[in-house]
Design a protein around this nucleic acid. Structure first.
Lengths: 226, 226
DNA sequence: TCCGGCAAAAGTGTATACGAAGAACAATTT
DNA sequence: AAATTGTTCTTCGTATACACTTTTGCCGGA
């Protein structure tokens, strides 16, 4: 029997609450809902065209992820990513993504490396076309892929969440730096391909330091802290 | 992350969903709900004596935290912490908690150090009394306190979540090691008090390595990976 | 005008009910 | 024995109700 488990379970049905959560996240990241803005359940329910229950469940997860703050009997407000936390985020990313790079170097299969190279090529091409949104997208894809190759689920899920917040804090500023950082990406993938964990970790560190420095420059124009 | 608004006014309520979530977490960690066990909403609602709504919201968060897996239209089952992830968890903890130790060393106020010393004393006392549960509790309290002193909210919240999972995977085994590890704790606090980041990081690393080694020994008797 | 208090409004927290649809399992038929 | 059908369980989304809390806005009085 060639029947797989994959569509055995109703896997293509995605619950409304997940759609609401995704929509809520992107709305917050894109700035449609501004930090400090009050998010009443009724309002969200109306915005997304659903009832209160899916909204409530999405809100609880969004709270756990740090996108909103829920005050008892007062409701939810969009969290305020004070620019002071940029340093905190990068400190954690530095620890986590360097580990990911090391593990990826030690475990990457040829197919994994090929996938990374493909992303690299697309990134170079998109950079030439000045397609900034696409570059940013590929940038995320590359890093996420490395996380995945590392094979450590904790690393992967934690860093993924961090990534969303990084994008939130300086949503456009980072895009402008992305082309510049592409050379560092090549170094990183080269190091991973070599299988040298130390070298990969070093390359990741260099990349993050550069990104961190750029982030601080762009941070000035960001949101004020509440 | 930590909004001061939270404890500003009238925040002593503690919504039911939070109580349910806490109860659910501890029930899973304590093994009252075993991995793979099916958790229907009605059943949980009855177990905790509440309606389905708080249960649903708690389940979504528990899913985000990795304690349960929710299959669309099938319901929630307790996640299976295969012992193979022990190494993954420790790899991440090593990166994170060493950073926490370093930051704590750099930022700890005298009051912070005093609080750590107090925990240390209580720990020594509890160890003499052979009060294992209390020792385990103080062990958690100490590490959590260091996380908090580090002042990095991301570090704190991520590591806190990891901690719960670590306790889950080898819930009793770790308790038996706890007395043995107390000497390492003293080294760690000493290093933090000295303000020497490198030394604190080193002490944290030594502690985690020892804990990791002990964990692997105890892991054999744990759950089988389903 | 400004202040204090009081009452209405808004909004969350919780419970309950109901219909729809998917998934699993049992029974029946071929 | 295999396939089909039917039943049951459960989630999913919706709707409604109500208690309680916080907020707001109004009103009268100084």
């Amino acid at each position: 029997m060639a029947e797989d488990l994959r569509d055995k379970l109703g896997a293509q049905h995605l619950p409304l609450r997940d759609q609401v959560l995704a929509a809520l996240r992107t709305a917050i990241i894109d700035g449609d809902y501004l930090p400090g803005e009050r998010l009443t359940e009724d309002r969200l329910a109306e915005d997304f065209g659903v009832s209160r229950n899916p909204v409530r469940e999405a809100l609880r997860v969004a709270e756990a992820e740090g996108f909103v703050v829920i005050l008892p009997r007062r409701g939810a407000v969009v969290a305020s990513p004070s620019s002071g936390t940029i340093g905190d985020m990068f400190a954690v990313r530095e620890r986590l993504e360097t580990l990911a790079a090391r593990l990826a170097a030690e475990r990457a299969s040829p197919a994994d490396v090929a996938a990374l190279r493909a992303l690299l090529d697309q990134g170079r091409e998109a950079t030439q076309r000045q397609d900034l949104p696409r570059v940013a997208e590929l940038n995320s894809a590359l890093h996420l892929r490395i996380l995945q190759i590392s094979g450590n689920p904790w690393l992967s899920s934690i860093a993924k969440s961090l990534y969303l917040h990084v994008q939130w804090v300086f949503r456009l500023g980072a895009e402008q730096r992305a082309p510049h950082s592409w050379a560092e990406h090549i170094q990183l993938v080269d190091a991973i391909e070599s299988g040298d964990g130390d070298r990969a970790e070093q390359a990741a560190l260099a990349h993050l330091d550069a990104a961190s420095a750029a982030a601080y420059e762009n941070a000035e124009g960001g949101y004020g802290a509440r």
